[in-house]
Design a binder for these strands. Sequence first.
DNA 1: GAGAATTCATTTCATTTGCAATGAATAATG
DNA 2: CATTATTCATTGCAAATGAAATGAATTCTC
Lengths: 146, 146
Amino acid sequence: MDNSSLDFQLAEFLPYRLAVVAEHLSLGMSRRYRADYDISIAEWRVLVNVADRGAVSVRDIEREVHLEKSKASRAASKLEARGLVTKETNTDDRRLVVLMLTDAGRDLMIELKRIASEYQTRLETLLAEDLTGLNTAIDKLLAEDF
Amino acid sequence: MDNSSLDFQLAEFLPYRLAVVAEHLSLGMSRRYRADYDISIAEWRVLVNVADRGAVSVRDIEREVHLEKSKASRAASKLEARGLVTKETNTDDRRLVVLMLTDAGRDLMIELKRIASEYQTRLETLLAEDLTGLNTAIDKLLAEDF
DNA sequence: GAGAATTCATTTCATTTGCAATGAATAATG
DNA sequence: CATTATTCATTGCAAATGAAATGAATTCTC
């Protein structure tokens, strides 16, 4: 059969392959985070950013960890409600919010970071000599405008 | 400052990196597909599968192109409503649906496949010697259970 | 071959998402 | 320095999502 001239295989199409593998890895993470700690991926990203930088605004999160501002805002509110971060208004610029970890948040982050590091190590071990290629490929793709 | 012992960088965390790059590439595709043809990614995956295999069920799609069955079902209905595919019930097993391309669907697919192939070529050119590493990395990751 | 169990597609419903609107605060401009 | 424009965070709302329910059809089991 003709099959409409062009031979094109979705299974080899990079955007598709990356979407599938990204979902696969995210699920591996989020299953555990959700089951054991009830933390979504968005909340995890906010937490990591706050943990790293000490005091961040919603805008910072949006820029730093690829999280749409409404998503970042809602994640931050949930974390505040759970007592993992505090949310104050920046006194220098009162449009900005200042997110900081609470002690409970700090404790949780130690756990989450440990798990994430283990996961990362597992992935790097699995990938071995292909890790470099993967990383430079990702960097190249991210640098490009599509 | 102590920064909670463990040094962990989200920017180097593979699940995060892959999620970001996957979204980046998908956006490059879907922007054009949506703007020029009003086709979502789910619809695109259904179309490709139907185009490749001639006659498929919703279950086939779910298995072949990583699309949750409700998503596949809804995408198929939209495509039917737009006259791009036909939807009949399989006479051998009347639980199954038989999706097939219409002539209009076939015409559209020629266009979409052409665009996708161009995109793929652009990506492969950009990646050059890193393409192999990326591909084997993806395959390794997909083969693993997380 | 009757009854139970499974498979398939759709739909229902609660939740999530993302865009746009809002309103408050600051910055820019004439 | 008053007006306009911009930035920031939140919220409203319509659409998308996904898990479970539904119901029809088939397969399994006794």
